[in-house]
């Protein structure tokens, strides 16, 4: 499993859409341009929808990986205010 160094980490396990994205988005808003957000999630739909929505909002998806039976690890770089 590849490790990218992140500036902020959030664990949104247990949350479902749209709160998964709401939490991820609020985290990105609180960060500086160029910083990297690490997200751990366990909602399968969100593993597809968060990267798509983040790209739509102008952020960069650096990496997405299934790390065990239930969880995904996602790295987003803040490219846009």
């Amino acid at each position: 499993m590849s490790r990218i160094s992140s500036d902020k980490k959030i664990d949104i396990k247990g949350l479902v859409c749209p709160y998964t994205f709401v939490k991820a988005k609020l985290a990105i808003e609180s960060m500086e341009l160029g910083q990297i957000l690490e997200i751990v999630l366990d909602h399968e739909e969100a593993s597809r929808s968060i990267p798509r929505s983040m790209e739509d909002h102008g952020q960069k998806v650096l990496h997405l990986e299934k790390i065990n039976d239930s969880d995904w690890l996602l790295y987003i770089r803040k490219d846009k205010e």
Binding site: F21, V22, K25
Partner: peptide, 12 residues
């Protein structure tokens, strides 16, 4: 939440 996820609104 339906406001926050809009790019034009967001948490701010």
């Amino acid at each position: 939440s339906r406001h926050i996820i809009l790019p034009e609104v967001g948490g701010r």
